[in-house]
């Protein structure tokens, strides 16, 4: 589902000729339906790797294939179209649009994809997803009227709305307390099992990481080791 070869990412460093090396030669293959955790300390390049795998950015060197498409040959709008069709995101800071209700936030990917074809069907699907994450009573609420856990539930409903083939989760429990975070993880994994989605989770949380089929340990931009918690 995802193939990354020799990924390198460098950024110019202000006041220095030496660039900042964030990723340095990462090779990776992730199979359909697999759950991969990316674990590493702050600054190890986890989020950068996720951004490159999801096509949010292009690497300085190396290639990424996502859902059978090489990202290098697509322009930004082409990558956006691929994300709309095949990718879902769960963000650490939820990234809900503050001026949209919970329902409207979940509707965004459905409207972008134009599936289901009618507005009524799209709304029914969004309501169903919100019901699935336990927010039937909160569909008309704005993000500011929801707790952190509820906001992340909306985020998960939105992430699964377009039935993505790959779902990227960036520190999905990073802004939540332990119990709430645990509930979110269970929900995420449950939906993943139901839908057969490939899941890439970036996390600091060792407990969360161990729920994955494989753990990629990243350190200073390099793959330190690949672990199968079994």
């Amino acid at each position: 589902m995802i193939v990354a070869r020799n990924l390198r990412q460098r950024y110019p460093r202000p006041g220095s000729d030496e660039p900042l090396v964030v990723l340095d030669g990462v090779d990776l293959e992730i199979a359909q339906g697999e759950i991969l955790s990316v674990l590493g300390p702050s600054g190890s390049g986890k989020t950068t790797l996720l951004g490159l795998l999801a096509g949010l950015d292009l690497p300085t060197e190396g290639t990424v294939e996502l859902a059978g498409r090489s990202l290098a040959v697509l322009d930004e709008d082409g990558r956006a179209a691929l994300r709309a069709a095949s990718v879902g995101f769960v963000f650490q800071s939820f990234q809900l649009v503050p001026t949209l209700t919970a329902l409207e936030n979940v509707l965004v990917p459905l409207e972008l994809l134009g599936r289901p074809a009618t507005a009524a069907d799209r709304e029914a699907r969004a309501r169903e997803l919100l019901g699935r994450v336990g927010l039937t009573e909160r569909v008309g609420h704005y993000p500011a009227q929801l707790s952190g856990g509820e906001q992340q539930r909306v985020g998960i409903a939105r992430a699964f709305a377009n039935e993505p083939r790959v779902l990227f989760a960036d520190e999905p429990t990073g802004n939540l307390d332990g119990a709430t975070g645990q509930g979110i993880i269970e929900l995420l994994l449950e939906l993943n099992r139901e839908k057969g989605t490939t899941l890439v989770i970036v996390t600091h949380d060792l407990e969360l990481a161990r729920r994955a089929g494989r753990i990629l340990h990243l350190s200073r931009g390099r793959v330190e080791r690949m672990e199968s918690p079994g």
Binding site: A54, L56, E76, D77, A80, A81, L82, R83, A84, A85, V87, G88, F89, F91, Q95, V97, V108, P109, L112, L113, R158, N162
Partner: peptide, 11 residues
């Protein structure tokens, strides 16, 4: 940024 990441084009 969120809209772009979930697939909205620049247009």
């Amino acid at each position: 940024a969120m809209l772009r990441s979930v697939g909205a084009s620049s247009r």
